[in-house]
Each structure stands twice: as structure tokens, then as C-alpha cells.
Amino acid sequence: MRPAAPPLFLDRLLLFLLPPRDRETVSGDLYEEFVEAKLPELGRFKAHLWYMRQLLSFVPRKAVAVFLPILLHGPALRILCCCSALAGGWLGMMDLLLRHPGYGSQLVIATTIVVQALLTLAALRFYRNGGLRVVAIAGSLPLLWLSISALKAMFGGAQFEGYVLLISLALIAQAVLTLSTLPRLRTFAGKSHDTL
């Protein structure tokens, strides 16, 4: 029983929300304020509400600390790159097997998709390599143009092709994530996530 202390579960939750550096100091400050000022001034119920409100004010910072690294280093872009590499590989293989008229240009497009996906994966893996990042960023621009062109051609034409829509949307998402993620990796390269 902790009669003159913040509720244990709220205290634990606060510790979870705080970065390691601030855990003891900030929770100690709020503990002290709760015991010495809020509990005598406001009474038990309102003091608990006050403590909860302070606790909630640390949620945005924790959310940024958790989700920003996931967005930057996390699975979204990697998954998209793996999917587009597989899709590009599959398209290229089908082009080689079926050899429809004009299959050469389609093979080039499929190869570009695969190379760009592998390049982006390499840039994510070796993010300290500035040259690799620049090449991956530059490569995402023609990919973006290619995907938008494919979508425009598909919606302008009479024939609707589901796989073109799917691959184009995935490539647009990949390009947008590449353009938003890779330039920022350098900023975060030297930082621990806990300092965010």
C-alpha cells in the first residue's frame, strides 16, 4: 500500500514513457510534487487526475521516439522494396518466357524496378555510405515518373490491368518513402533512439 504516493501502475507507466536519462529525475520530481503539493491541495482524486495529466503529456514525445525510427529504419520501405524486387523479377521472367512483341522495353523496366529496389535496400543497410544513398534517391525519381506514367496510360486506355495498378501504387509508395527517408538517415546515423 502506498497511501501518500502516486498509484503504482501510473508510476510504472510514467517510467515507460520517459527516456532512460530522465526516468529517475522526472518521475522523482512528479512524485515530490504529488506528495508535497497536489495531494494536500487537491485531495486524492484530483491529485491522481493531475498526475495522470502530467503523464499523458509525455506520450507525444514517446510516440515520436518510438515511431520515427520505425519510419526511418523500419520495415515499411524494406517490405515495399522486397515486394517490388519480387514483382519486377516475376515480370522480367514472364517477359523472357513469353517474348511478346516489344518485350525488350518491358524487360528493361522490370530490371530497373529490381535494381532500384536492391539499391534502396543496400542504402538502408549501409546508410552511412552517402554515395549509395544519393544513387538510391536519384533512382527513385525515374521510378516515380515511370509509375505515374503507367497509371496515366492505364486510366487513359480502355483496358484495366490490376497488376499494373498494384505495382504502380507500390512503386509510388516506395519512391515517396525513399525520398522522405534516405535524406534524413544521415541526421539520425549518429544518434541513439533514446535521445530522440
Binding site: D22, T25, V26, G28, D29, L30, E32, E33, A37, R53, Q54, L56, S57, F58, V59, P60, R61
Partner: peptide, 26 residues
Amino acid sequence: YGRAVLRDVQSASGDSRSISAGAVYA
């Protein structure tokens, strides 16, 4: 120290509820 700064900032604002601990510590 943290708590004293928090109290000082909150009292300076006139309305202690308007300024959260999270904002001060950040």
C-alpha cells in the same frame, strides 16, 4: 531542479493547468 523549474514556469503562466510537465522537460 526539475520540479522547481516546472512550478516556476507554471506559476509564471498564471494558469498551472495550461503548461504540462512534458513540455517543460522536453
